[in-house]
């Protein structure tokens, strides 16, 4: 209990801006990943990276404000992301079964 209350103090040793910048960087890496990769799974992983950047940020804010709701949100995100993974991978598998590839570049039949 004692230790728990010290956590914010420990975390605050690093300025909040650092967390913000770090997770922003992480988020941007995720975006770049989404933009540059053609493999559906890698893109999906990049999206997960973005979500994790958000998680980190939430955790940091939560600690700085000594407000647990942010951390609770992190759990929600994790749970929902897991569901998303399940569905997403299923879709990817389905596509792989049909066309033996998961390159999003060639999935452009629907256009104009």
């Amino acid at each position: 209990m004692q230790q728990m209350q010290q956590i914010p103090d420990v975390i605050k040793l690093i300025p909040l801006n650092f967390y913000v910048l770090f997770s922003s960087a992480l988020f941007c890496i995720g975006i770049v990943g989404v933009l540059t990769r053609r493999n559906a799974i890698i893109i999906f992983m990049s999206v997960e990276l973005m979500l994790n950047a958000v998680n980190l940020l939430l955790a940091a804010f939560s600690s700085y404000r000594a407000d647990p709701s942010g951390q609770i949100f992190v759990f929600f995100i994790m749970a929902v992301a897991a569901a998303e993974v399940a569905v997403g991978l299923a879709i990817i598998v389905m596509i792989y079964r049909n066309i033996q590839t998961i390159d999003v570049g060639i999935l452009n039949k629907l256009k104009w």
């Binding site: 988020f27 559906a40 949100f73």
Partner: peptide, 25 residues
């Protein structure tokens, strides 16, 4: 076509979710 639509929707939707979440954060 259905497959492609699902994948597109999924990838872009997930991406948009990421943006929304970052905003919320």
């Amino acid at each position: 076509r259905s497959n492609e639509a699902a994948l597109k929707y999924f990838l872009m939707g997930a991406f948009a979710t990421g943006i929304l979440l970052f905003g919320i954060a």
